[in-house]
Design a binder for these strands. Structure first.
Length: 525
RNA sequence: GGGCCUGUAGCUCAGGGGUUAGAGCACCCGACUCAUAAUCGGAGCGUCGUAGGUUCAAAUCCUACCAGGCCUACCA
């Protein structure tokens, strides 16, 4: 029985179409999932859409559609986009699914029975136009609603509250005792400061009266209310692996990794563990938090119109190029800048000039000098031993980096192999050896060299597969190793020097990464 | 107000108590010509935000300050 591995993206809110942020989250998750599959783990990758809440019903109304039709439409766009991009998710969950509604109600009932949910009356400043209670920040100097310029009315309402504050100390202690529980570490500190802020942790309002909101899941213990936001959204991670009935649920759940953007740190870092605790379930392994992409030095936002569509990027540059840029350019956890110029520069340098050209020169030389047949390597000399040592070491490093959620560093490690191979070729100068056809020693050295570079390509392809799956299989195919990825196990198969069979027929092909053109400078408007 | 993060080469950023501070891009010189005018070698480039402190030793730890960003407030 192989080790289970469960990884999730957040469910994406269906108020916008997929942009660079959603895409980055999914690219990271897909890459990590692919790595664990290649490591022989029983991997399950969950993604989906969050479809409840008044924003959705309002957006639907604005478009003159039924809420369900609107949600179906946007959810469909997400799903088809992810399919187009070949993300390897195992389930696409929607919060409007009956199975999910059932799970949410099950958990709500459980927490309610445990005494951690209670009905409270509170009063506040309610704006009829907004259909919600306002905070001080929503008010202007004269105490009026900023949007409607009308004074709010004092209104009382009863709602259900999750008694989250009970778990403050428990959670703080857990975070302190488990370094890496929330990572990178800066975000764990951030959560600790939320727990210890002056106000402390407040209880969480989890309902809305039905007269104010209908588009939601009814509370099982009081059908005059629907569940509001976080219980609904977070519990998808349980529904996704068929809580509670699936026989594999427990094992999967004990190996879950959540990937999120830093904007939803609080719900995932605070609400979610406390909900799980209250429901009597174990909490997640790791919360992995990534930063934001700044586009043209600005935050991505709908109003600026600077959202980057993954499908447009794919059409313009090829999706693996875009994907590579996202993975390589952002240090996981930190913010990064996106521009098409930077993408073109990075892709040309790393993928065209280094990797692509390496593949091209290796396979073409083999074709030219040895009719494309992988030759006998013979005994290793110092240079080959250096390569072998690198091949022993790098896959382990990559493995550690992937498990520490540092894909950008793992990718840099893989490229150490590419650089070493380019350098090795220059040291050996096989094109010179090839001319010395009557020198047996040179011929032997040429064989050794050609074997070694192709073997390096094999290793590089295996390690690259989670990042650039299509490129990896293309290279392997050209090495006469089609289908190798289905059998490969990382890191050991990448470490095993000599995995490329002697006598294997190879074939040349078009450049993997033709040089990209710089985008035409756009007008400043 | 409270909290967090960032400030390192012209640009984008790694690194994070210990030999002369790193990479890529850009620029310069050289080598090579198998390859996508790719590759390899070499050179230059920095008071590691500022001022103090701890230490045998600080870009790295501590304090204060300056600058930018973020969270605190449901955009990945």
């Amino acid at each position: 029985m192989t080790k289970p591995f469960y990884i999730t993206t957040p469910i994406f809110y269906v108020n916008a179409e997929p942009h660079i942020g959603h895409t980055y989250t999914s690219v990271i998750t897909d890459t990590i999932a692919r790595y664990h599959r290649l490591a022989g783990e029983d991997t399950f990758y969950l993604t989906g859409t969050d479809e409840h809440g008044d924003k959705i019903s309002q957006a639907a109304e604005a478009k003159g559609q039924s809420t369900q039709a609107f949600a179906d439409h946007i959810a469909g766009i997400f799903r088809s986009t992810w399919d187009e991009l070949d993300f390897s998710y195992d389930r696409f969950i929607r919060t409007t699914e009956p199975a999910h509604i059932e799970t949410v109600q099950h958990i709500l009932q459980k927490v309610y029975d445990a005494g951690d949910i209670e009905l409270r009356e509170y009063s506040g400043q309610y704006c009829v136009g907004c259909e919600r209670f306002l905070t001080d920040r929503d008010l202007d100097e004269e105490g009026r609603c900023k949007d409607h310029e009308k004074p709010p009315e004092e209104r009382k309402e009863t709602n259900y509250f999750f008694l989250m504050s009970r778990y403050t100390d428990w959670l703080a202690e857990h975070i302190e005792k488990n370094p890496g529980f929330i990572r990178p570490a800066g975000y764990a500190k951030e959560v600790l400061s939320m727990l210890r802020s002056d106000n402390g942790l407040e209880d969480l309002c989890i309902s809305r009266p039905k007269e104010r909101l209908q588009w939601g899941i009814p509370l099982p213990f009081d059908t005059d209310y629907v569940c509001y936001v976080w219980f609904d959204a977070l519990i998808n991670y349980l529904t996704g692996i068929n809580y509670p009935d699936d026989p594999q649920f427990e094992e999967r759940w004990s190996n879950v990794e959540h990937i999120i953007g830093k904007d939803i740190l609080k719900p995932h870092g605070v609400f979610w563990p406390t909900i799980l605790k209250a429901a009597g379930l174990p909490i997640y392994q790791h919360l992995n938090v990534h930063g934001f992409w700044n586009v043209d030095n600005r935050k991505v936002s709908k109003s600026l119109g600077n959202m980057i569509s993954p499908l447009v990027m794919r059409e313009r540059y090829g999706f693996e190029c875009f994907r590579y840029f996202l993975l390589r350019e952002m240090s996981f956890g930190r913010d990064a800048s996106f521009s098409e110029e930077a993408l073109v520069t990075r892709v040309n340098a790393d993928l065209s000039k280094n990797l692509g050209n390496l593949e091209s020169r290796c396979i073409k030389m083999l074709g030219r000098f040895r009719e494309g047949i992988v030759p006998e390597p013979g005994a290793a000399t110092e240079l080959e031993k250096d390569l072998e040592a690198l091949v022993k070491r790098i896959p382990i490093t990559v493995d550690e980096q992937m498990r520490n959620m540092e894909p950008h560093r793992a990718l840099a490690s893989v490229f150490e192999l590419v650089d070493a191979t380019n350098k090795y070729i220059d040291q050996r100068a096989p094109w010179k050896l090839a001319k010395e056809t009557d020198n047996a020693e040179s011929m032997e050295l040429l064989d050794k060299t050609l074997y070694s570079v192709c073997e390096m390509l094999r290793v590089i392809s295996l390690l690259l597969a989670p990042f650039l799956p299509e490129t990896a299989s293309r290279i392997l195919e050209r090495l006469g190793l089609a289908g190798a990825l289905e059998k490969a196990v990382l890191p050991q198969d990448a470490q095993a020097w000599g995995g490329l069979p002697v006598g294997n027929p190879t074939q040349t092909g078009d450049p993997l990464f033709p040089r990209l053109e710089m985008p035409a400078a756009e007008d400043a408007n």
